[in-house]
Nucleic acid binder design. Structure first.
Length: 153
DNA sequence: GCCAACGTTGGC
DNA sequence: GCCAACGTTGGC
């Protein structure tokens, strides 16, 4: 049973184009610093799961591409890098607090903006559309995935 | 830049 | 364990 996820990235940091241009179209998903999002990676993700690649904190936020989970969880090396904005002094290499997975871009899609997602009643329960949601990684129901795939064409 | 809505921290 | 203060996210 395949599972689906939505993963937010600021295109200034890693856009869908950056991911497609990376070796193997694969990037390490660094910088997750929220326990709930981390736990989704740790407890829920499997290699091959579908990913909606979402651009956040940018002029036009929305879904920008399709990707897949390309590895199991690994420690996020940026937590040990004192020069990284994601540095966490309280995390110890023998007991890493933060994890990542590799994400492989499958294809760039048209930009599917938030207002268009909100306009679809079938997507009302999509986690990122719910009020107050700020999670950078959220599960996506198979039915929602199908609707979104259709909208992307 | 604003601000709503969360999450985290730390004193008690 | 409570909760006020503070920090962050992220759309607008």
């Amino acid at each position: 049973m395949p599972q689906y996820w939505l993963m937010k990235s600021e295109p200034d940091e890693v856009s869908i184009d950056d991911a497609l241009a990376a070796p193997g179209a694969t990037v390490a998903w660094t910088g997750v610093r929220n326990y709930q999002a981390r736990n989704f990676m740790r407890d829920g993700m499997k290699v091959g799961d579908g990913v909606l690649f979402y651009h956040s904190s940018c002029p036009e936020p929305g879904i920008a591409g399709i990707a897949r989970v390309a590895s199991g969880i690994k420690p996020d090396p940026t937590q040990f890098d004192a020069k990284s904005p994601y540095y966490d002094a309280k995390s110890k290499p023998e007991d890493p607090r933060w994890l990542l997975v590799d994400v492989q871009a499958v294809r760039k899609t048209r930009l599917l903006p938030l207002p268009e997602l909100r306009a679809r009643p079938e997507l009302a329960e999509l986690v990122i559309l719910r009020k107050g949601n700020r999670l950078s990684i959220t599960p996506v129901e198979p039915a929602h995935w199908k609707v979104i795939e259709k909208m992307l064409g």
